[in-house]
Each structure stands twice: as structure tokens, then as C-alpha cells.
Computed example of a mutant assay.
Amino acid sequence: MEAILPKDIQAGLDAARVDSLRKSSRLRVHADGVEHKVLRYWDTGFSLDAQTAPQLRGRVDLFDGAAHLFQCLIVAVEQEGGEMLFDFKRATRVAKSAALDFERAADAPAGLITVDAPH
């Protein structure tokens, strides 16, 4: 059975839920030099607070604290329960190091140790 609540009570419950999500999340989206706190994250997208979320579309960067996780192409899907939902068109994990332009041998040395010759 589904309970039907008055609009003002439902709005208050939605606001409390969004506030709780905002306080517990470390994820951030950076778009056009502006940072937005992610309320929820799932494999195919994320949500932002509908009150403060702009109509983002295109390239954004997803961070967990200071760690850069993904470069994403996104599109806004819908607004639901005080949240603006976004889907990933593409989410590319950010590499920790630059890509190599050669094949590294499995038995390659980790470094070069030299011995100083006596003088």
C-alpha cells in the first residue's frame, strides 16, 4: 500500500533526504570551473541537488576528495525527489601515470645501479 502525503510534508521529507546525502558524500563534480557536490553515484550516472544543480551537459571531472577519478561526458536525464539525475555517455578513468609509447618488457630492470670506481 502506498501512502499519499500532502505536498508540503513530502517536500520536507525530500529536503531532509537530500541534506543527509549532501553531508555524507565526498564525491564532487567540476564543470566550467565550478564544483558541485554529488549526492548519489552509480555505475551509469550520478545525482546533484536539484535546487543548486545547473543544467550540466558535456564534459565534467569527477573527484573523490582530492583524487581525480573520471573524465566524463554527461547528459541530464530527469529531476526526481529533489535530485537532478545525470547519465554518463562516457566515463574514462583517469590514469595515475602517463601512457607509455613503447612496450615495457616483463623482465626489464627497475633501475640502474652504478658502482663508483675507486680514484
Results as ranks from 00 to 15, higher is better:
Glu78Tyr: 06
Glu2Phe: 10
Met84Arg: 10
Ser25Glu: 02
Gly65Cys: 07
Val115Tyr: 09
Leu85Thr: 01
Gln51His: 09
Val77Cys: 04
Ile74Arg: 00
Leu100Glu: 13
Ile9Phe: 10
Gly45Pro: 01
Glu78Thr: 14
Gly45Phe: 00
Phe63Gln: 01
Ala50Cys: 01
Arg17Lys: 14
Asp49Ser: 01
Gly111Tyr: 15
Val94Gly: 01
Ala53Gln: 04
Leu85Asp: 01
Phe46Pro: 00
Ala106Tyr: 10
Leu73Tyr: 08
Lys37Gly: 09
Ala50Tyr: 00
Lys37Gln: 13
Glu103Ala: 15
Ala105Gly: 07
Leu100Tyr: 09
Asp8Met: 13
Lys7Phe: 04
Ile9Gln: 14
Leu62Pro: 03
Pro109Phe: 04
Thr44Asn: 03
Ala16Thr: 11
Glu78Phe: 08
Asp43Ala: 08
Ala11His: 14
Met1His: 11
Gln10Glu: 14
Asp49Lys: 01
Glu2Pro: 07
Leu69Ala: 06
Asp61His: 09
Asp49Ile: 00
Ile113Gly: 03
Arg22Gln: 10
Val18Asp: 06
Asp14Arg: 11
Leu100Lys: 15
Asp107Tyr: 04
His36Gly: 02
Phe88Tyr: 05
Ser97Asp: 11
Leu73Ser: 13
His30Leu: 15
Ile74Thr: 02
Val18Tyr: 05
Ile74Pro: 01
Arg28Asp: 09
